[in-house]
């Protein structure tokens, strides 16, 4: 399971959801979907912008956690 730690990075950089969404170029609704872990996929372009604005690595935003509910494809 992929955990999104966007709220942690936003708190560290003291940036609000509205401001971050403006600078990334996506709607606050979409950013909220990502922040609350409801997103099913993220584009590399979006991840690139997030890392640039938050001055961090993808691993600072995305974390993998083993879950017993995961099914092998």
């Amino acid at each position: 399971m992929i955990i999104v730690n966007l709220d942690v990075m936003m708190a560290k950089r003291k940036i609000s959801l509205g401001e971050l969404s403006d600078r990334v170029g996506i709607t606050p609704a979409n950013l909220s979907i990502l922040k609350t872990g409801k997103a099913k996929a993220i584009r590399f372009s979006t991840l690139d912008k997030l890392c640039k604005i938050l001055d961090c690595q993808p691993a600072d935003i995305l974390e993998y956690e083993y879950s017993e509910d995961e099914m092998e494809d």
Binding site: I26, N30, L31, I33, L34, K38, A39, K40, A41, I42, R43, T46
Partner: peptide
């Protein structure tokens, strides 16, 4: 479509 809608 659901996957697309939840792609950020």
């Amino acid at each position: 479509k659901a996957e697309n809608d939840f792609t950020v």
